Amino acid sequence: CLCSQPSVTRTVQKDGPNKGRQFHTCAKPREQQCGFFQWVDEN
């Protein structure tokens, strides 16, 4: 991610068109995240 740490892969849980879709995001706690976000299928 943007803070030079490994990102984590998560899955959208919220109902909607992206439910079940995976994405990479910053591994830090929400209030400390660098803002990195990337869909797995758009690499």
Rank of each mutant, 00 (worst) to 15 (best):
F37V: 07
K28L: 10
P17M: 06
W39C: 03
K28W: 01
W39R: 02
Q38D: 04
S7T: 15
F36A: 03
V8G: 02
G35F: 00
F23T: 00
D15V: 08
S7L: 13
P17H: 12
F36M: 04
Q38K: 08
S7R: 08
G16I: 02
V12H: 09
H24Q: 13
C34E: 02
D41T: 10
T11L: 09
R21S: 03
Q38I: 06
P17E: 07
H24G: 02
H24M: 13
K19C: 09
Q22L: 07
F36H: 14
R21W: 02
N18S: 07
K14N: 14
P6M: 01
D15G: 06
G35A: 06
F37L: 10
T9A: 11
W39E: 09
V8D: 02
E42D: 14
E42L: 11
F36N: 01
R10G: 15
P29R: 12
E42N: 15
V8Q: 09
K19H: 10
R30G: 12
W39K: 09
A27H: 01
K19W: 06
K19Y: 10
F36R: 01
K14V: 12
P17T: 06
H24S: 08
G16A: 04
P6R: 10
K14W: 09
F23A: 05
G16P: 01
P17C: 03
Q38F: 00
Q33F: 02
S4A: 05
E31R: 08
G20A: 04
C1G: 00
H24L: 15
K14G: 13
K14E: 13
E42W: 03
F23H: 05
Q5L: 15
R30W: 08
R30E: 15
F23Q: 03
V8E: 07
V8P: 04
S4T: 07
F36K: 04
V12G: 06
F37A: 05
C3G: 00
R30D: 06
K28E: 03
F23C: 09
G35P: 03
K14H: 13
D15I: 12
Q32T: 11
V40N: 12
Q32K: 05
R21C: 03
W39G: 03
F23M: 01
F37M: 13
F36Q: 05
Q33V: 04
C34A: 04
D15W: 03
Q5K: 04
R10S: 11
T9R: 15
